[in-house]
Design a binder for these strands. Structure first.
Length: 300
DNA sequence: CTAACTACCTGGCACATATC
DNA sequence: GATATGTGCCAGGTAGTTAG
């Protein structure tokens, strides 16, 4: 039985971070303490729980069974405490100097971040904004560690514990340059598959995308001759050539150099979501950040 | 070589006591 | 009761050691 009166509750915060990091050095960095201090904390926690909690192994520190059992309930308890303490606090962007860290691929940069940018850095002369490259595999960890505040991504149910909010639904449109020599405003399947296509392959080098999966179901194939890493490059490529591309509609409508061609099938679509870690859910500054995004994204 | 641990040191805080 | 001063303790620091 742990005696609350004689226990330093800061130790629980250390334990919480240790149980996510499985590494004393990294936990220390996150807690803004030295490594030996966290080592001492760990020693006290071991004494307190009468359990080694984390055992050094060849691949980081391995949590004991008790440590595993403690992880989620402790997380929940601290989160609820945080919520209680933050409940009456309001974030004032004018007074604070925050560095917002946002991860996104180029579509979200253009559609969401660009419109909200002014609000994020304009309301305080000290705030900064860092837009980071989106690496889906590292996302959960980066959000957990606070290396990223929020991220924008295509809705994907594999992102388990993260909190999310759908910002918009987007569909692809067939796009070509306005001065394309052989395109009419409407085409049939045969004409579609006869065109030379360019696609974005986020992982690099792929020649098959969502559209191809959909076409396969219709029993047809298209001719993808160019694969590029992002939409900016793709748009530029079709403006400079007779290639066509399936592009998110919001990126190309109103571009005077481009035309949209009516498709003989229903194009694929996706939902863009904002993602954040439950850890930052009740933080007033994070809430403000998310509100800025929501207010802007839902208007545009 | 990297990461955890240990020994030792120090600044700051809490508490006790003194003074008004 | 409020404020000033003295003192002991301890958290967290650095440096060095140990272990895998």
């Amino acid at each position: 039985m742990i005696n609350f009166a004689t226990t330093d509750l800061n130790l629980l915060k250390t334990l919480d971070v240790l149980l996510t990091e499985h590494n004393v050095t990294r936990a220390a960095q996150r807690l803004h303490l030295s490594q030996p201090s966290v080592s001492v904390h760990l020693a006290k926690l071991r004494e307190l729980f009468n359990d080694p909690l984390l055992i050094p192994s060849s691949r980081g520190m391995k949590p004991t069974l008790l440590a595993e059992e403690l992880r989620q309930p402790l997380r929940n308890a601290l989160q609820s405490l945080e919520m209680t303490l933050n409940n009456n606090q309001v974030f004032n962007p004018v007074l604070e100097n925050k560095t917002w860290k946002i991860a996104a691929a180029d579509y979200a940069e253009f559609i969401v971040i660009k419109p909200v940018m002014k609000n994020l850095i304009g309301q305080s002369s000290h705030s900064k904004l860092a837009i980071k490259h989106m690496i889906p595999d590292k996302l959960v960890r980066q959000l957990e560690r606070g290396e990223i505040d929020i991220a924008f991504h295509v809705r994907d149910d594999s992102l388990g514990e993260l909190k999310s909010r759908i910002l918009l639904t987007e569909h692809y449109v067939l796009t070509a340059r306005k001065t394309h020599p052989s395109l009419r405003p409407k085409i049939d399947l045969k004409q579609f598959s006869g065109l030379k296509h360019a696609i974005v392959s986020p992982n690099g080098g792929g020649f098959s995308g969502e559209t191809d999966t959909l076409l396969k179901a219709l029993g047809i194939e298209r001719n993808v001759v160019l694969s590029v890493p992002n939409f900016y490059f793709l748009i530029d490529s079709i403006k400079q050539s007779d290639l066509v591309a399936m592009l998110p509609s919001r990126l190309v409508t109103n571009d005077p150099e481009l035309q949209i061609i009516e498709l003989p099938f229903t194009p694929p679509s996706f939902e863009l979501v904002m993602l954040w870690h439950p850890r930052s859910h009740s933080d007033p500054a994070h809430q403000w950040l998310r509100d800025q995004v929501l207010n802007t994204a839902l208007i545009h």
